[in-house]
Amino acid sequence: MCRWLAYTGSPVLIDDLIYKPTNSLVVQSLHSRLGAEATNGDGVGVGWYTEGSPTPGVFRSIEPAWSDRNLRELAEHVRSGMVLAHIRATSGSAVQQTNCHPFRHGRWLWMHNGLLAGFSAMKRDLVLAVDPDLFPFIEGSTDSEVLFYLALTFGLEDDPPAAVARAVGLVEEVGRAHGVAFPVQMTVCTTDGQRLWAFRYSTEGQSRSLFHNADVAVLKEQYPENPVLHDLSDETRIVVSEPLGDLKGAWHEVPESTCLLIDAGREELIPFEPRSPAH
């Protein structure tokens, strides 16, 4: 499917996040260890927030991450305290810029690993459920973008966990109506630039991998000679499709059917369950 990374903490160069780690996102674009495919070469995207800007910046490209020279140039010069990065392996939709993640609406960013099974059969019903005022902003043809706009329709800007629960609930209702046994497979990340939410869920209960880092202050005590750790602020939080390295104890798996909320360096694990949008 895809691989992604979300970072929140003191400002760092994007290069430090997506190129320098041992199992960096760029390495994963060629040699993913835990993905459905080893290669994720159908595009790359980065979203970031900078102080004083009302909306996040977004870079999206159909080039593979391992060979995109513009991505390398941007990564070496952009510094941010909130970064989302994504490498794409398409599940059927076209390889084009408008289908690359992260997707943006106002201050919000969204990225997804997984798929909505049977999307071609469900697409008309799902798109018609999007708020008419939001519909014109859908630019691409992916299930991921439609899921984003369904979440916006159900109140993402006010209550992200409830909105995503309703969006997923709708997809499962429509999927069942079309005879799809397991409509949803997702690890999703969304942020408004201040807080970050990551969701791990699948209808089948066998979700794609998702991890978050252990407490940085604890890791600094355990590995006092590790220079990488001492460059990170204690409030640093990283959420990834697969660990960026092999440091023992550095990564914790996000449980099945869980929403991970990160706010100002504090994190909370919240049970996630789809809800009927009628409720």
Rank of each mutant, 00 (worst) to 15 (best):
V240P: 03
T236W: 10
H77G: 09
A129W: 11
G92Q: 02
F135V: 00
P64W: 15
R33N: 07
G106P: 06
F135H: 06
S67D: 05
D192I: 12
D246K: 03
E235W: 09
S61T: 10
T55I: 12
C100L: 14
E268D: 09
L13S: 09
E63Q: 13
E76I: 02
G249S: 08
L134W: 02
L152Y: 04
A163F: 11
K248P: 00
N213V: 11
L71M: 08
L115D: 06
F272L: 06
R3Y: 11
I62A: 10
D15C: 10
I238M: 14
G193M: 14
G43E: 05
T22P: 00
L126R: 05
Q28L: 12
K220C: 08
D16T: 12
E173V: 09
D16A: 15
Q194W: 10
F119S: 07
G169D: 12
R60G: 04
L109R: 00
D133S: 14
P56R: 11
F119R: 06
R237F: 11
L5F: 14
L261C: 12
R275L: 15
E242R: 06
V83P: 05
K123I: 00
N226R: 04
S53G: 00
L170D: 02
L34T: 08
G179K: 00
D234F: 11
L269F: 15
V188F: 08
F119T: 07
Y7S: 01
V146L: 01
